[in-house]
Amino acid sequence: MRREVPLFITFFIGMLLIFSVFIPPMESLGEDFTVFFDIIAVFAFFLGGGNLLRVHVSKLTRQKRDWQYSIVTLLGFAVTLVIGLFKIGNPGGIAAAPTAAGSLFQEIFDYCLVPLGATMYSLLAFFVASASYRAFRAKNREATILLIAAFIILLGRTPFGTVVTGWIPESFDVLQVPNLAVWIMNAPNLAGQRAIMIGIGLGVVSMSLRVILGIERTYLGEDKS
């Protein structure tokens, strides 16, 4: 029963949703099932919070390696939760929304979480530089083609590209770097992307059919029977 019930539910709901694509009176079924998902997601928040507390309290009490970081996590969690729940520092009082303008809860979000997130995001600029350096080393034929394509696109997207090849006559304007960059993006790049997208589409259908028909069961554990 541990396996049969989930497999039956998956098959039944999966087939229902496939039919809903072809049968107009059933087309809103997908949205209806999303509501069920939202209900489960509400309970999952408690699950996530509970797990966070359990993991970090255990780390703290057993003084595992780097346990000091858990104090920061637990303090941050508790302070934000208490301020949000009891509307501490909220100009509208207990009746106002926790995210009301000027509330301490909103300010924690605006002045702590958002700048920290932005800091992490800004690291991307440096990582892009280091990753590009590694990718554009002309080690072999493929890497050389990649380097040339990247060079043309980088040049084509700057005013310098227009200046450098602006002298090429109109009849050969395809050879101007900005036009070459557009061609690379719209022809070889788009063709490659579409090929991958077709593969992904087939993979999604295949995976979904495997799960719906019960052929793929690894996510349930192996069949002992």
């Binding site: 996530g48 966070l52 997130g117 800091t119």
Partner: peptide
């Protein structure tokens, strides 16, 4: 579980 904030 870690967090539901992308960069955190």
């Amino acid at each position: 579980f870690v967090t539901q904030s992308q960069f955190a």
